[in-house]
Design a protein around this nucleic acid. Sequence first.
DNA 1: TATTGTTATACTCTATAACTATA
DNA 2: TATAGTTATAGAGTATAACAATA
Lengths: 144, 144
Amino acid sequence: MRGEEELLTTATAVRRAISLLKRRTRETQTHDLSLPETAVMSRLDRHGPDSISGLARWEQITPQAMGATVGGLESRGLLHRIPDPHDKRRGLLSLTEAGADLLRTARDNRTEQIAHALADNFTPEEIAEIRRAATLFERIAQFL
Amino acid sequence: MRGEEELLTTATAVRRAISLLKRRTRETQTHDLSLPETAVMSRLDRHGPDSISGLARWEQITPQAMGATVGGLESRGLLHRIPDPHDKRRGLLSLTEAGADLLRTARDNRTEQIAHALADNFTPEEIAEIRRAATLFERIAQFL
DNA sequence: TATTGTTATACTCTATAACTATA
DNA sequence: TATAGTTATAGAGTATAACAATA
């Protein structure tokens, strides 16, 4: 395949994949946690307590948008917020016991769902290729 | 890497990539065509005229949602609709001259943008890998 | 001055429900 | 009955603007 042709073919395939992934991951009705919620919960679990602003910077969204996501999780008792003793403006968010349980049990967890989709439908070689490509796709996102 | 560990690592990377791609492709202000609009225009260009229902089935969204996308393109003079002579319910959508021009000129076109992002920031080997992986990502979407 | 967080508001893209016209 | 298309309405997840409290 010629270089330029390959480029457009690849770009079209990427655009198509993004479109489909966007739609399919929007349908959250059968899941306990939406995609943004899963991201926040996993982040707090792996990196420890953080503020709304910190989480927003990490996910590259506005603090207002992160506030909405966090608020939903708090109202469901999955996160709790304690004041930062060193900075009275900040609140430090962490998982409640219920939140940690939900994440560990991992039923209906988005990452688990993806893991199952991978395990059930792809060969180990394809999974290895997907893992490498996920990093490349993240890099693509940086340039859009 | 152990099988199960690799699976979760891969799933997390995929989830992260999807989250970032979703956000970055939402910002349409600097573009003439949004992602769904680009999809419809490219489809009509490559496969010829189609109805709203046909396009909706292809993109796997409801006819109502597709009607909204198409309506926006029609009102900007990029698509026009002619009645299907064989079925008075249907309208056949195709690109107007302006629509075809926009797609061919491809300035601010999403696919072109992706193509440039690829060309400027990835090696030919990486682009080949991305092309293969895009198909795998589409398959992942089918199982979510 | 800069940062943390909030409230108010609006946009995009999608969904479900209910309808008319045609097949 | 089934399909093509429309209008009405709602929801998730984002954004910008404007503000209060604190650093």
